[in-house]
Design a protein around this nucleic acid. Structure first.
Lengths: 223, 223, 223, 223
DNA sequence: TATGAATGAGGCTTCATTCAT
DNA sequence: AATGAATGAAGCCTCATTCAT
């Protein structure tokens, strides 16, 4: 496929123009749309931008989507689809607290911070909030709340199994999520990881969770 | 939304050509700009929107600002100016931990969550990040980092005064900020307070800080 | 005014969306541009004027030219392209002086005064001089100077062949050009031919050249 | 008077604001107008340009002229006013031909080429021809034609006095004007003197006139 | 399906002119 | 007389969308 920027020598056009299946084309378009929308926002992104990045002409987009808005919506629908949790191994609820905390933190980082699309999508959601109200509600109901609930179940199970003292963290599992949102916000706004480094932050988060879940161990250690 | 910068009731603007001092006009324009930009984003906001809301004709804006971009930048400059910390009373470093924690949390909530402009501005920063890179760096250096540093000083002072055990929170004061960013993100993206309510969240935050700062009290209480 | 570049009768443009090849469209646009620019000047000509005259919508122009300025420049480039001298018959250098002089004057008149575009273009060049400096230099180097040089060659050849006395005209061939610029200026400024009439002026020019080239014949005649 | 570009420190404003007589002010404005209009043309010149150059505010212009067009017209009226010929010394009609020719050429150069305003004004006339039709007619009747007529008188007187042979130049005095228009056109379009230099051209013009007026002298000299 | 010329609405900006001061 | 904020009408240009090919 000739790059859209090349002056395209007429003779170089291959005999058979690439004809892709609609599914592949639409995926290409949505990829391009995510990249472009997240770089410039909805209003500042033109159909030409998307067309160019997906290797199509402007008019060609309309063979697959009815409008710019339709592309945007389809793109977000795909990006906000609930991730597959099933394939993950069983959570080490019965392991020692440090192992358990590290596993939890790793899950959160993997789901939110290590996926480039996640930050990009959140940025778009914040920017175009007015355009996608109902999609946001859907996402909260289907993705956010269930995940927080599951988090609570895991925490309760771990505390019960080890006979750890009660604490806010167990009663308010969203506080765990709260921890990583700092990194998220930094990336959303400053566009880069916090200065201290992701690895350092993860260690701090694990340590914090350990202190909260097992204060006795901390006091014993502090002696 | 009553902007904190505009003491003028908008309803008082009468018809007819009214000449105001540039200072007043510019403040009006920036107020209008903040409101409009944060509703629709930079690209989707028109000069007509801003003009209408500031009670001016479209052309009239150009007597005060050279371009749409100049308005945007001036607006953010004003919004990101370091707030006045001096007027606040002395932090109760020597008070008991709960009082100290509540004071800290209150400060954070007051500075970030209870000001309507703060969320709105953060949303704009996330959306138009590419447009205001250098402003963001400035803001981080002049506002964010100093505040985090001051937070660390306060925490260390409190812990030292009361002979509390060492912990992550003291070593990594940004974790405290981390707590409220969850609310911030929720407001940025969902456009409303978390379902559990701000008051409830504040209590949880205070409790969490107490647990982290004074684990002995928690264990004693848990008996 | 039928442009020499547009073989298309303008009246044939029907309503409805008509797609033409870019070459044809661009020629139409440049024709329209020349007509409009020369009527009102660059600044006072609107894209709507050009669009209307080329049978296109305003936006349509931008499918072919990036800006008003690009149209202007392309139009002048075309207008200032060196004319085709090759097709003309061999200059009658060896004929008698009157025939030779008449041939030279005819060439100048044909090249400068009888082409409606020439005056119009010169007017534009004078008016928008600041906008097209480098184009002017190019034109002088590629068109004006070579033509003056060729003029000198012809004059020298004629004088040598007939054994005529030396004179300023042969040493300074630009004086020949000088003769017709009066008409040019009149047309540029007054917008019409001089009151005495083009035909009369041509006769005067021929006579003047004869007097200068062959003073002996004049004196013989004057007796 | 504070420069319009300076940020004007309020306190620095001198006690008495300069109040000029209307005549002086209007002359200043017309000077500024000529300079600005000739640099950019009518449409591209703004009232602000003129105001700035005449040391006035935009609104101030309207205290003296009713509109932009009124300024333009007044400026041209002043520029096209017939020059004062009376003060010049008597033409050396009875001197030898070379002296007479040089005097004539000098007059033309002084009147047209050595006055910077003349070229500038002609450029404006060519550019804004449509705007000033009737002014142009007036100028032709009152300035151009009388001067050409006077030229004819002088030539006839000189030829008669010296018994020189009849020739086109005497019958068609506009041919003399024709000579200098080449320089005029060059300056109008290329914005600079011809490459060969003004002095050289003047000598050539004088020589040409001598050849035309007195062919016998030329032939005698050529022997 | 795909292309890209074409449309038309609308956005940013300029500027002649007005007018309160 | 003079200032300069303010208006309103264009003007240049962009872009989502349509449609002939």
């Amino acid at each position: 496929m000739p790059s859209p920027h090349a002056p395209l020598p007429e003779a170089a056009a291959p005999a058979g123009r690439r004809r892709l299946t609609p599914q592949v084309r639409m995926a290409q378009i949505l990829d391009a749309a995510l990249a472009e929308f997240s770089e410039r926002g909805y209003a500042a992104t033109t159909m030409d931008d998307i067309a160019r990045r997906s290797g199509l002409s402007k008019g060609g987009l309309y063979a697959h989507f009815a409008s710019k808005d339709a592309i945007f919506e389809a793109m977000l629908h795909r990006a906000l689809a609930p991730p597959e949790w099933q394939e993950s191994p069983a959570p080490p609820v019965h392991a020692d607290t440090r192992t358990f905390a590290r596993w939890l933190v790793d899950r959160l980082y993997a789901g939110l911070l290590h996926r480039p699309d996640a930050v990009v999508t959140l940025r778009l959601l914040a920017a175009e909030r007015g355009r996608v109200k109902e999609l946001l509600d859907l996402w909260e109901r289907n993705v956010v709340l269930p995940n927080v609930a599951m988090l609570g179940d895991l925490l309760r199970a771990h505390v019960a199994h080890h006979g750890l003292p009660d604490g806010v963290l167990v009663r308010e599992p969203w506080l765990v999520v709260s921890l990583v949102t700092h990194v998220l916000l930094t990336q959303m706004i400053l566009g880069r990881e916090p200065a201290v480094g992701l690895e350092h932050m993860r260690e701090s988060h694990v340590a914090l969770m350990c202190e909260l879940l097992d204060p006795r161990a901390r006091l014993a250690q502090a002696k």
